[in-house]
């Protein structure tokens, strides 16, 4: 029996768990994605109509719609099922079970995270199909089978980076019980500086350039641009290098915070 056979079991269990909640699957898809797309549609339509332009910062109107369709879908792949679950485990004392079981807590949690990413990537394919039905395919996007595969692969790596960053902030719960506001603040900061609200090309060029040395764009914008076919092979490899660098940095920090945090853990809770 392999030492890591539990990984497959956790992966499969997570997929089965999410598939059993069909309502959640479709309500997210139709609700959250639909609502975000509707807001973006009316907002950008009025901007394009007012300015009487065909393109803004390299995006046509239908190109932007595709961008806003993919933002929440890709966000699901990268951010996993639930925000704040590690801090909740610490607060409620259910972290205890992972300290007793002979598995690495983060390996367990990341496996569950990756399972959800895998399941969510199916929604990206559905989303692209539905977009093709309602909008003209944007000429400024060169989506191909390879770019979709590359985008999803990059999203999995971004998912790990997001997991490591958010876990570090969630572990503040070892010292301060309730860290929900902090987790939410990190989430919104990542969304803003990662291109979740508007594409990074709308930012001042100096800021945009500087941001590409920070981890933020690699948490959304980079995998999204890869999926949309906007990254050349060279820029993709370069971006991948920066992403992996940050993944190492945050894994190191994660380990330090975990070592110190578990010393504070009391195992009390609900």
């Amino acid at each position: 029996m392999s030492k890591f056979s539990w990984v497959g079991q956790v992966f499969s269990l997570e997929i089965r768990k999410h598939l059993s909640y069909r309502v959640d699957f479709w309500s997210y898809f139709l609700g959250a994605v639909g609502a975000q797309l509707a807001i973006a549609y009316f907002l950008w339509k009025s901007i394009f109509d007012f300015l009487q332009v065909e393109k803004m910062q390299g995006y046509s109107f239908s190109g932007l719609m595709l961008y806003y369709l993919l933002v929440p879908l890709l966000n699901q792949v990268i951010r996993g099922a639930k925000l704040g679950y590690i801090s909740e485990e610490i607060y409620q004392g259910s972290l205890t079970r992972y300290l007793i079981y002979p598995v690495n807590f983060f390996a367990y949690k990341y496996t569950a995270h990756a399972a959800f990413s895998f399941y969510s990537s199916l929604q990206i394919l559905c989303g692209l199909g539905i977009f093709a039905l309602f909008f003209p395919w944007p000429a400024d996007m060169s989506i191909s089978f390879i770019s979709v595969l590359g985008g999803i692969f990059t999203a999995f790596l971004s998912g790990y980076l997001f997991f490591a960053i958010s876990a570090i902030f969630e572990m503040v719960a070892f010292w301060a019980d309730n860290v929900w506001s902090l987790v939410l603040m990190v989430y919104y900061t990542i969304n803003l500086l990662g291109g979740g609200y508007i594409p990074l090309s709308f930012f001042p060029p100096t800021l945009e350039k500087a941001l590409y040395w920070s981890p933020f764009p690699y948490l959304l914008s980079f995998p999204l641009k890869t999926l949309l076919g906007q990254e050349s092979l060279f820029s993709w490899l370069q971006g991948l290098g920066v992403l992996i660098f940050w993944a190492f940095v945050f894994t190191g920090l994660l380990s330090i915070v975990w070592q110190r945090g578990t010393r504070q853990y009391t195992g009390v809770g609900i």
Binding site: M1, K3, S5, W6, G8, Q9, V10, L13, R16, K17, Y101, P102, V103
Partner: peptide, 15 residues
Amino acid sequence: LPAADCFLLLREIYQ
């Protein structure tokens, strides 16, 4: 999860 699924997972965890 049903207990049977939990036990299967523990079987893998404890090998």
